[in-house]
Design a protein around this nucleic acid. Sequence first.
DNA 1: TTTCAAATTATACTTGCGGTATAATATTCT
DNA 2: AGAATATTATACCGCAAGTATAATTTGAAA
Lengths: 303, 303
Amino acid sequence: MNKRKRQIIQAARQLFLDKGYNDTSIIDIISSANVSKGTFYNHFTSKTQCLIAILDETREEIISTRLEVALNTNPNDINVLLKQMALIAYVHRKRNLMQIFEAVSGDKDPELKQVLEKHLINEIEWLASRLVDIYGEEIRKFSYECAVQAIAMMQNTFRVIAMVTKQLATPEDVVKNVLNHVEGILIHLKKTNSILITSELFQALHQKAEETQITKSILLQQLHGFTEKLTADDPESGVEYAKYLLNELQTKDEKTYILEAVLPAFKNAFKDTSHEAEANEISVSLWRYLQIKNEEKNNNSLI
Amino acid sequence: MNKRKRQIIQAARQLFLDKGYNDTSIIDIISSANVSKGTFYNHFTSKTQCLIAILDETREEIISTRLEVALNTNPNDINVLLKQMALIAYVHRKRNLMQIFEAVSGDKDPELKQVLEKHLINEIEWLASRLVDIYGEEIRKFSYECAVQAIAMMQNTFRVIAMVTKQLATPEDVVKNVLNHVEGILIHLKKTNSILITSELFQALHQKAEETQITKSILLQQLHGFTEKLTADDPESGVEYAKYLLNELQTKDEKTYILEAVLPAFKNAFKDTSHEAEANEISVSLWRYLQIKNEEKNNNSLI
DNA sequence: TTTCAAATTATACTTGCGGTATAATATTCT
DNA sequence: AGAATATTATACCGCAAGTATAATTTGAAA
């Protein structure tokens, strides 16, 4: 991603965080980013598009951290799920996203609406599959129903608690509470068997929302571009990690497990630097790539 | 309420419904209401205030219909609760309020935010007490937790279903589904006993949000003003009901049960007329008044 | 190093909004 | 009838998003 674009996004995010989305004008953004109006509109066709970029970045941060949390853990460990779910709240809070979502979710821009919907659907699908991890195959038919309701309960609990008291709830408490409810719902559903939201409803969408294929060459290109930009000002460890990842990927038979192990360190090395977002982006791509590789390996060994 | 104000509200509501809140300008409203800008700002200090008036009206419609549904029924009949809960969805859909809520709930106006919060809190408190009606005193300690989660699930289910399919869910199905979940949660809570949202959290608020006292004189005034406005164009039955209510109220010992019985007919007589909103308003006040009266009676008979 | 296209800048402009101000006119109440 | 009040038309303000454009800077290839 372009240097200017980063500059603008960073300034905009800070301003949205400080003053809220609606109270931040384009002028505010460009003067804070030391950039002219023309440049802004070179990179974003509208204020909304700028917001979408920020939202996507944040989403990347959540996904990569979520993958990191799950590293070397048992998928059916409920405490891992707990941490992962609390993560969303933590990142949203850090980025002050709640107010942005609220300030924005109107009819303003159909594209923005679509982006938000896509994020929500991803969230639901992820949680549904994690619930199956935890509670076993037998609850698969209830997984979407439960995922939807769990997300609803989480969001609303935060909202109501903030409304009624003056302090915020800790994400862990809220998640624990919600997961407890989900358990109750699941036990009851095994008896009554009546749900509204089936996995079939989501099947149709999923086909359209196909994710862009990740290929090794794209990955290499991304990583190459990234390392090029690094200077002596950047953390030494980060530079070393990046170069290692690049080299290892270029070999024919990458050591996937080593790569996977190095990834969190790579990601964390750039935390709170200007490269944080791009490091997250790369992490997510690489993680996806490694996942595919590992699946291939397993399939081959089965043959 | 003033004739002009009604005119404006009606036009605004239709426009919000057709084009959404953000896409409706003041100019749109006043030209549709055949009113000048000055008049608009005579009655509302801002666009937001106009929206608040509409929201309050809608709320009145919900409350009065909800009371009507409960007439002569057993408070612990779960089917009554089901109907009452579905009502919210029906009215919101009829008024197309969902999109307005979404388009609006931002940081725009602190007063608007407050109004929306007040409505939500009222809703929670009402549902919490109804859940106690149904599931008995022993679940009182869980009632607020469950009410909050039930509302969350309802809202989100509608949203997700609208998102994933192209058609809307029927309110009854959604409510049934949600109440089923609530049952599951309740059963589980009896074992685990762990909740986040306690009734104490709401106690503090409730004291502040005291509703305006209803007195007979205010009621009479309201009703008198209303009957004055009625003409031959208005439904004959409605006029008769209104006059009866007024006369009966003026006697020293009103026949409260008869009044209660007539109220739904009165309300329905003005459905889809220009007096609908005001009739709802009066119904709610009168219902509240009768409720207080009846409580007094019961207390006296106990002595 | 020169050259040339692309990115960036400063600046002025358009459009549309919410809201104010005001003087003239109409309505209502007593 | 006369005074108070409501309504109207109209012009105006400030601000924001977004467009247009000519001049300047940047940066990479030749």
